[in-house]
């Protein structure tokens, strides 16, 4: 059997994926389309697809999960799991986990942390950032996406996380998912790592970036902390978010929450517009999930330009200002 941990969007999230986070919808589709292998080979293709939701289960999310082909929803909710504690949440997942098959999540920070706990608690092996599976094992991203590792996990139960955008969410004939409710009580030890408070500041909000349909990226080419007016205006015109390369945050030009790449957010917009970004491997790791990439750069040989779908060669300040003007002109 396969159990997928599903993350539900917060109340402020763009409602694009109907209550279920996009990356979770991808993980459910990955599970559904690889059921026979993930279940351990011997199981029938009709083995049920189960998911676990911790906290509120909205009608919107239930409906979305039905369209993703889910057979059974473990709805886990109790005072002990209201605040996030990886240990308590992981134990709740362990309580509903199969003895054979796969426990999995999408490769988000929550998904990674919870699956590591689940693997440690169940004595199972774990593969992070899996992009494909076949009879010979898994293929997963390593070196920040610059290479892939082929590996085989041993044991009756395996734990994995699916790399963002390893597949597109795919609707199927809607199911009537059975809903099983669980009200776990966590041990005192498992509550030691509970969130005691959440500080909401705009500068720390990465959800806008990871869920955005358009991301305007800005790199060293911007030149200084005062050089972001044009790219911010472009992001605003397109209803998108600003993402920056590591050098921009290292230089203190923008907050770390806006960083995209191996040690920042991994994004998956429909369009990524990279302005003045050379395209180091570490940055590429965070943007390779974009459907279309447009590069604006003075250097035609820059990796970002060569890997882009479209490019303009030129100074980003001049080019982006002209784009902003053109968009404004057409809207008149």
């Amino acid at each position: 059997m396969t159990l997928v941990f599903v993350e539900i969007e917060g109340p402020d999230a763009p409602s694009g994926s109907g209550g279920v986070q996009l990356t979770s919808a991808e993980a459910v589709t990955f599970a559904r389309t690889n059921t026979a292998i993930l279940d351990g080979g011997s199981a029938a293709d009709s083995s049920p697809l189960e998911v676990a939701v911790i906290g509120a289960l909205t009608d919107e999310a239930r409906d979305r999960l039905a369209h993703l082909g889910v057979d059974r929803i473990h709805h886990i909710d109790s005072p002990d799991v209201h605040a996030y504690s990886a240990a308590a949440w992981a134990q709740a997942l362990v309580d509903v986990a199969p003895t054979h098959g796969t426990v999995m999540a999408s490769g988000t920070p929550r998904g990674m942390e919870l699956m590591a706990h689940v693997a440690a608690r169940l004595g199972a092996r774990m593969a992070a950032n899996v992009v494909a599976v076949d009879e010979d094992g898994f293929l997963r991203q390593v070196l920040g996406g610059a290479a892939f590792e082929r590996l085989k996990l041993t044991g009756a139960l395996q734990v994995l996380t699916v790399a963002g955008h390893a597949c597109d969410p795919e609707d199927t004939a809607p199911t009537e998912p059975e809903i099983l409710t669980h009200s776990p009580e966590a041990s005192a030890d498992d509550l030691r790592t509970r969130v005691v408070r959440t500080e909401v500041e705009e500068a720390d909000d990465t959800s806008g970036l990871t869920q955005a349909k358009v991301v305007v990226g800005a790199g060293r080419g911007v030149g200084s902390a005062d050089g972001f007016a044009e790219v911010l205006e472009l992001a605003d015109h397109l209803g998108g978010a600003l993402g920056v390369s590591r050098v921009v945050t290292s230089l203190g030009w923008r907050p770390h929450a806006e960083q995209v790449g191996q040690t920042g957010s991994r994004i998956s917009p429909d369009v990524y517009i990279a302005c003045g970004i050379s395209g180091a491997i570490q940055h590429w790791a965070g943007v390779q999930g974009a459907k279309s990439i447009i590069a604006i750069n003075t250097d035609e040989e820059a990796t970002m330009v060569q890997r882009a779908d479209y490019a303009i060669i030129g100074d980003l300040h001049e080019v982006v200002a002209a784009i902003n003007e053109e968009i404004t002109r057409r809207r008149r």
Binding site: D136, A147, E149, Q306, I312, E318, E326
Partner: peptide
């Protein structure tokens, strides 16, 4: 558990250069 490493296939660039400088803004929009 690693059996092997693989590198992504070498992709020849398929970039469409829309032009140079601000004059290319219209094509990009």
């Amino acid at each position: 558990p690693r059996n092997a490493l693989e590198l992504p296939p070498e992709q020849s660039s398929t970039v469409t250069v829309l032009g140079e400088g601000p004059e290319a803004a219209g094509a990009l929009v």
